[in-house]
Design a binder for these strands. Structure first.
Lengths: 208, 208
DNA sequence: GTCTATAGAGTGATAGAC
DNA sequence: GTCTATCACTCTATAGAC
């Protein structure tokens, strides 16, 4: 048995090319060449280009959820749970930068059935954050706000880190995670308190 | 003179298709068809597909910067400046959703010279935010932090709003802008204060 | 300013030998 | 499991008539 299978070699080559050029701009020929085989041989391992994209996205989403669950295990306090969730999210995105970038930008390359499968996983992941935000809000730990919008805000904030992060740059993964952690906890605790003290914000309260 | 020129019609068709399918997945034929002409005629108005993309991105970035400057005009107070900048950024991104989405995801479609031109504009825009953050930090209005990382955080946070916002949805542009405004001001004021009271955070202060 | 026609290259995918 | 050869198609872009 080889140290890494050709299937994994192709996967890695595809991740690299999809990240650098985008799914549509990267060709099967290029992926095959980067894997050291001809393009016809690639079809022995993956039945289509779209299947290769789906395999990458599916594994990334499953690993992301597993990582979140392991980060939250045994933690009860709401603020601690949010800190752990944010830290885990940032860590995963910075450590597996390319795959996560693809997972956030190349969903259009999937067929309808595969698209639904990935979105279902993404929704389940977001729901974990929404539940923590909602629980914190009900306990009075976090200020009133819109759970969904705040969850999108938090997740995209951390996810975006993956687009500028350089592994050998000025800051480490943990330093960046800590900056985000504090920024988010502060934002959640005080957001809107000054304008709507103690009350939930009605969606209809439009400003002029 | 027609109400809208063919050049503008093509531009709008391209914005719509680049937004929905991505730059590489959208073809010149489709853009021409959506504009009511044949593909050969399109080349009378734009010399290449890449030139069409560049025209869209350049105008979007110029308008974005002009909008920011008009939002900040005559405002001196740092917190008020940050609030105005965030509000302006969110407004522009939600009101011109498609163009901004393209500007944040299709830079890879540009040639080297055009890429540099757009990045130069983006950097100038980010610098306005970094200057406000830095001034606030020095005045003690904002907590110590890393100006660049915080500016990326703030901008991507608001930009991301454009990816889920629906113009006829539950919340208005101004409601969303206000949520972000408060979240960000809270995050800036207290971020890291608890862990590093009163001191600037050295980049080398790694956590275990 | 728009058209038809086409050049020239590259695409994802398949057939079948080894 | 990898190869060569090829299919059927699409792509961006150009030539030249009207």
């Amino acid at each position: 048995m080889p140290v890494v299978s050709m299937k994994d070699t192709i996967r890695q080559a595809a991740i690299d090319l999809f990240y650098r050029k985008g799914y549509f701009a990267a060709s099967i020929s290029e992926i095959a060449a980067a894997s050291g085989i001809r393009k016809a041989s690639l079809y022995h391992h993956y039945e289509s280009k779209e299947a290769l994209l789906f395999a990458i996205l599916k594994e990334t989403m499953d690993d992301l959820m597993a990582h979140l669950e392991s980060c939250l295990e045994g933690i009860g306090d709401i603020e601690a749970r949010m800190r752990a969730a944010v830290r885990g999210h940032v860590q995963f995105h910075l450590r597996r930068q390319k795959e996560n970038f693809i997972a956030n930008s190349e969903l259009r390359g999937l067929n309808a059935a595969h698209y639904r499968e990935i979105v279902r996983r993404r929704d389940a992941y977001e729901r974990v954050f929404q539940e923590i935000i909602g629980a914190g809000r009900r306990q009075g730990v976090f200020a009133p706000g819109d759970d969904k919008i705040l969850s999108y805000a938090i997740l995209t904030l951390c996810t975006a880190g993956a687009s500028w992060f350089k592994p050998d740059g000025r800051l480490t993964v943990d330093e960046i995670a800590e900056i985000y952690e504090n920024f988010i906890i502060s934002g959640l605790k005080r957001a809107e308190r000054e304008t709507e003290p103690g009350a939930d914000v009605p969606a209809s309260a439009a400003r002029a």
